[in-house]
Amino acid sequence: MSPPPQFRELFESEFGYVTRTLRYLGVRGHEIEDVAHDVFLHVYRHLPEFDTARPIKPWLFGFAYRIARDFRALARHRHETACEPQNLRDGAPLADDLLVQSEALEQALKALDTLETDERAVFIAHELDELPIPDVAEALAIPLNTAYSRLRRARSKFEAAARRLVAQERTR
């Protein structure tokens, strides 16, 4: 078995993937930095246990999902996302600037926001990272049928949101 990858190299090569994933999972504003820090802290700790025969991204996705989910749950509890303006901290990069904005991307992020976090995770892993559903189920540690039903719900909600957004566009 080959040795586990060096953390520093992994950090360099996968930082972009992790932060983009976090953004798509609904983490935004200054939280991206905090959540990315926590994700890599866990990755560091568990790296020696990583099975190098397996691809790294689904493994990282599992950490990103679980930490983002708890972070969002806590933020919701505090009504932080609804009440506090984003990006107020001095010097912190604006996480919503992490991606070069376009109208289509803005709409896509709005549509993603209509999904529950667990549906969203399956949707992103499958539709964007192109992981087969059995791999998604494994990365998220959920039963296969659950993964399929979340994907079904996610697609339906995403499509409904997309339809609404297109309709709004036409009435402008």
Partner: peptide, 18 residues
């Protein structure tokens, strides 16, 4: 994915990082 979703999914896939 259904038709209305396709363009939005492409936007997510092709999003450029700043």
């Amino acid at each position: 994915p259904q038709p209305n979703s396709a363009a939005l999914l492409s936007a997510l896939r092709e999003a450029q990082v700043n």
